[in-house]
């Protein structure tokens, strides 16, 4: 799976401070560390960037490009800031993100065409987030045809099916997988990506990693192309490199509904099995899911 490092984010205090002071050091440090961790893209998340967005994005892109050769994913809802960043990206960049909302179609999508950038398009539309796989399909098909009409080819479209926290709605997490399975048939050639950490929003911090990692294995099997992830989750990177096939196979078995003799497993393996069962909706989520038999 193509991994996009999520760690340069204005919500992080160090980053917002560095940005305000135009101090490159903390940002470049993070860029280098993520690059060394082995991700494929760096996400630069400026949030709404209402004030001074243009200058901020420009400075941020330059600063990061000085430190890393990785391609960038520019993450802001401000189209002016977005354009300022796209204009100076060295490589083919990724717009994070557009959606089926009218405003986004009018202001974000044309940027993808103008700068030959890739564009993440979410299934969100003016009616909100669709509640099931069929609703997601319907929404994204409309936006994709609009994008095609604007001259954006499927190869440049990265669909974001929108992942909700498992602690909020387990059914949605399952519907997400159903949708990813059908994506290749719906719109041949499109890619997909997801804010993977969203899955574990609301879950106690020390338990978030295993949820994210298990889900990466699961959606990878469904055909997911990429994910925006915590670059410093070493186990996640390792799973993605194919270094933990035992765990991967176990998770696949849970997905197939196979009976697993948990007695013979290590405690780590058991944790992955329990986590996969929760994600599949077989067990109702609670923060203590790893402690239950």
């Amino acid at each position: 799976m193509i991994l996009i490092g999520e760690n340069i984010n204005i919500m992080v205090k160090v980053i917002s401070k560095a940005l305000e002071e135009r101090n490159p050091e903390p940002i470049q440090k993070l860029a280098i560390a993520q690059t060394e961790a082995g991700v494929d893209f760096l996400d630069l998340n400026l949030g709404p960037a209402r004030k001074d967005g243009e200058a901020q994005m420009e400075w941020l892109v330059r600063t990061v490009q000085e430190a890393s050769t990785l391609p960038l994913s520019l993450d802001t809802t401000n189209p002016v800031a977005m354009e300022a960043g796209l204009a100076i990206c060295r490589d083919k960049a990724l717009i994070n993100s557009a959606s089926g909302k009218q405003e986004s179609i009018e202001k974000m999508l044309p940027l993808a065409q103008k700068y030959s950038a890739g564009v993440i398009i979410s299934v969100l539309n003016d009616e909100g987030i669709p509640s099931d796989a069929a609703g997601r399909a319907e929404s994204i098909m409309e936006t994709i045809s609009t994008a095609n009409e604007l001259g954006i080819s499927n190869e440049d479209i990265w669909v974001d099916p929108i992942l909700l926290p498992v602690s909020v709605d387990q059914q949605q997490v399952v519907e997400y997988m159903e949708f990813v399975k059908m994506l290749a048939d719906l719109a041949p050639g499109v890619k997909s990506t997801v804010g993977l950490s969203n899955l574990s929003n609301g879950t106690p911090g020390e338990l978030r990693g295993i949820l994210n990692r298990t889900y990466m294995i699961m959606i990878g099997r469904c055909g997911q192309y990429s994910a925006i992830v915590d670059a410093f989750d070493k186990e996640l990177i390792s799973i993605n490199k194919g270094e933990m096939t035992g765990i991967t196979e176990l998770v696949h078995k849970v997905m197939d509904g196979e009976d697993i003799d948990t007695a013979s497993l290590s405690s780590k393996e058991r944790d992955y099995v329990k986590t996969a069962a929760v994600i599949m909706g077989k067990v109702l989520y609670s923060h203590s899911w790893l402690e239950l038999d």
Partner: peptide, 10 residues
């Protein structure tokens, strides 16, 4: 429902 289950576990 999730929080209900959690409290029962606790």
């Amino acid at each position: 429902v999730n929080a209900t289950k959690q409290l029962n576990i606790m």
